[in-house]
Design a protein around this nucleic acid. Structure first.
Lengths: 171, 171
DNA sequence: CGACTTTTTGAAGTCCGTCAACCAGTGTGG
DNA sequence: CCACACTGGTTGACGGACTTCAAAAAGTCG
């Protein structure tokens, strides 16, 4: 198993349900984490940009909870950590805990029940804080992630653009 | 600082922004975690029942991210863990990681975008799986947690009750 | 019994999802 | 080069789900 992976757009890193081995860290590009719902439809759980982990969500499971797919061409580095080795490395565990709770914190921001436009605004702001690449995902993917229709994302971004106080909007 | 705390209904365990010291474990009753939004309104982030942790969300922070308040009379046990001691205890960290990801997994279920009735059903089912006490929180609190109006919760529960295939509904 | 909170119901308006169409950009084959 | 297909973005129209507002009913506690 090579340490470094290069993925072309659309290419899968791993699929939901396959055995979990080790997490990856993104060094370039952007990936999406995808969950298949009971009814067969897919939801985008999260996006990952350089400096962030992929696969950590399944750390204490046998199999991956999500699928991971590249949106743009991406490079990743497979970490050597596994459950056995890390059980003796408290510093590592501490770092994992920090990463995971940061992730949980982020997902807590765009609350359901807030107006769509607020959720879109929060999403864009968050993404900008994490990376300076222009939004690489489609409106449909944003919609899937935020739990709203693609058209609603488009309309929200339009009014945000019109409201814009001079700062340029993404893409 | 006593190890065991008994809280009356409405009583606060700690407030958002106060220094984090150690997590608690609930041994009886039920608590709510509350986040104050930028606009001043409050949202119920989560409920905690016996066997679950309170405060763990702020593990790697200086101050509490949420407030915690008792809904019914509750007893809690303060854990002796702190960041310094645990950095040398990988087994503990591993367990914390597991707790935290289980929590993240639960919060991932009632996706925004699903119809209100489905979210209410999922919430009730989840709560039943965690404890056998009848729903101790008000409809308004459920609504705040799920991001919908109190009235919507009431109506959803009514239709669920009518649909009921014989099994009794909560409360 | 009142004062209070919580639950429930009704009515009206709004936000958003769905459907449908069109546009712009890109790639492909003749 | 152009017709064509295809993907992603955008816009409009419409209906339904949900929020909001208002008020009554039901439970709680002094």
């Amino acid at each position: 198993m090579q340490r470094v992976r290069v993925l072309e757009p659309e290419e899968m890193l791993f699929r939901e349900g396959t055995p979990f081995q080790a997490p990856f860290i993104v060094t370039s590009g952007c990936l999406e984490l995808i969950l298949t719902m009971p009814d067969g439809r897919e939801r985008v759980v999260a996006f990952r940009v350089p400096g962030e982990m992929v696969g950590l969500e399944s750390w204490n499971r046998d199999v991956h909870r999500y699928s991971a797919r590249a949106i743009t061409q991406s490079t990743l580095c497979r970490l050597r950590w596994n459950k056995a080795s890390s059980r003796r490395n408290a510093a590592l565990m501490s770092s994992l805990l920090a990463k995971m709770s940061a992730d949980a914190e982020r997902n807590g921001i765009p609350w359901p029940g807030l107006p769509a436009i607020e959720r879109v605004r929060a999403f864009i702001e968050d993404f900008r804080n994490r990376t300076d690449q222009p939004l690489p995902m489609t409106r449909a993917q944003i919609g899937s992630h935020l739990g709203m229709a693609e058209e609603t994302v488009v309309r929200a971004m339009k009014t945000l653009r019109l409201r814009g106080t001079g700062r340029a909007m993404p893409d």
